[in-house]
Design a protein around this nucleic acid. Structure first.
Length: 463
RNA sequence: GGCGGGUUGGCGGAGAGGUUACGCAGCGGAUUGCAAAUCCGUGAAGACCGGUUCGAUUCCGGUACCCGCCUCCA
């Protein structure tokens, strides 16, 4: 059995990973709030934890890993989006507009993440389907003295949980000193956070012991992970920006409601993504959704390769330069593994991934396999990273048959060999090159294949 | 102010207390009608200042700069 080591945010060291139950390894990752298209930053944890999912499936067996990633379809941002649409003249009730928006966004999310080669998680629970469980958990917290109801709100009593701040390495008193916490009249302590809040008639709401209202954000993940994975599970993942307060609050809720469990044994956080060296933001004009990149012609596989080139624990920069390099490499490898059946991944690749998901190291191993001409090893090892898979390679040949161009060029060349007038050959070659076609001529013959920037429309009239 | 991440050759980016990372680009050569592709060879690094050590880019301390979180943003 391969020994997997993972950096645990909770303990701040790399640890040997030992599942609670090797027959059912359980992973939970915070999913998207479905109010808009996923941006490329949202895609990083998807690719990172998809790779972890693939590794775990390889090591423990495909049917022995449960991966849960939620959809937060219950959120004030969604409400605001729906409200804005209603004001803009959209017809239908607010509930209908919200449902429409979340369904549409989930569909987009699936399309975009599928394009990146991410496997669908085992389960993708929606928050709206677990409000009952959230209410139940809140009741337990109140009964145990960890939460209190006031003015239609229910708040978590942060001071009742001694370990609060441990995950994120913060001291409660320091946070108070920072004093940027919301002070509300119904809070016993400024640090207390909302588990339940009242909804007025214009907002979606559920009946609860505290009146009609809606849950706070943090309780969603606690309730869903409990329902689907139990009070103790193996790994909890997400972006480092969620470490505080979201994950800290999850720990507090889950551990106080179910002290018999450990909640998540291992916490993994991916670092943030930047674009051309800067934080992605709408005002800088470097804000991209995954769909934007796909529409610009970056294949999902190329995006995935760029992501995997940097260790998940380090900040990653998205640049056009990297994408171009990734495309060239994948194009080369695709040519190498065409028609080759997959076997078993190489030990070196597996070892790199098992070492805290060292995807950059794994890619170096792939280069070694390619250099050694081990096409089967390359293909099978790449599959562990979600690369070079059969369903994702359409972009390479662009669906165009270039055989007749090759034949034509070969004929011209043959004639030129006799006449020593290479002008017609060079003219056709230049035309092909300008259409992004790679032209290779040797004693063995003529080969043409789509290259970077291939544009089929420029081929018209060439024959 | 508090907490955390980063700083490696022209660019990207890993591991390891002492031995070539790797990829791209560059340079030289083979090959080619010219190229491309391929193959062979090759130069190039560890932000700064100290410390530990026979020896540190790798461990420890400090400085500088960049970034994130502390505002229900992955």
């Amino acid at each position: 059995m391969v020994t997997i080591r993972l950096h645990n945010t909770k303990t701040r060291v790399k640890e040997v990973f030992t599942p609670i139950d090797a027959g059912n390894v359980r992973l939970y990752v915070c999913g998207p709030t479905v109010y808009d298209r996923a941006h490329i930053g949202n895609a990083r944890p998807v690719v990172v934890f998809d790779t972890l999912f693939r590794l775990l499936r390889h090591v423990y067996g495909t049917d022995h890993v449960t991966y849960v990633r939620n959809f937060t379809d219950l959120d004030d941002k969604i409400n605001a989006t729906a409200l804005a649409r209603q004001k803009a003249g959209a017809t239908g009730t607010l509930e209908a507009l919200i449902a429409e928006r979340t369904e549409e966004t989930i569909r987009w999310y699936h399309e975009d993440m599928d394009a990146l080669g991410a496997l669908r998680p085992t389960q993708e629970p929606r928050a709206t389907a677990y409000v009952g469980q959230m209410i139940a958990m809140i009741e337990v917290l109140i009964a145990k003295g960890h939460a209190y109801a006031k003015e239609g709100h229910v708040l978590f009593r942060v001071r009742s949980y001694a370990d609060y701040g441990r995950l994120s390495g913060r001291a409660v008193d320091d946070m108070i000193a920072g004093a940027r916490v919301e002070v509300a009249p119904f809070k016993e302590d400024p640090m207390d956070f909302v588990l339940w809040k009242p909804s007025d008639a214009s907002l979606p709401g559920w009946d609860s012991p505290w009146g009609r209202g809606r849950p706070g954000w943090h309780i969603e993940c606690s309730a869903m992970s409990l329902a689907l994975l139990g009070a103790s599970f193996d790994i909890h993942g997400g972006g480092i920006d969620l470490q505080f307060p979201h994950h800290e609050n999850e720990v507090a809720q889950s551990c106080c409601a179910h002290p018999e469990g450990d909640f998540a044994r291992v916490w993994m956080h991916n670092e943030m993504l930047q674009v051309e060296g800067k934080k992605m933001s709408k005002s800088l004009g470097n804000f991209f959704t995954v769909r934007d990149l796909l529409d610009q012609g970056y294949p999902g596989e190329v995006i995935r390769f760029v992501f995997l080139g940097t260790h998940y624990g380090k900040p990653m920069d998205w640049t056009a330069e990297k994408a171009a390099q990734a495309e060239a490499t994948l194009r080369k490898w695709r040519g190498l593994v065409a028609g080759v059946p997959a076997t078993a991944p190489a030990d070196g690749v597996l070892a790199a991934l098992a070492d805290d998901l060292n995807t950059a190291g794994a890619i170096a191993e792939l280069h070694a396999l390619a250099a050694a001409g081990d096409a089967a090893g390359l293909k099978s090892s790449a599959a562990l990273l979600g690369l070079l898979e059969n369903g994702m390679g359409d972009w390479v040949d662009a669906g165009v048959d270039l055989a007749h161009f090759a034949a034509r060029l070969a004929a011209l060349r043959e004639a030129a060999m006799a006449t020593k007038d290479f002008a017609p050959v060079d003219a056709m070659k230049a035309a092909l090159l300008s259409a992004g076609v790679e032209v290779r001529m040797s004693k063995a013959g003529v080969e043409v294949l789509p290259g970077p920037g291939f544009d089929a429309t420029k081929l018209e009239g060439l024959l």
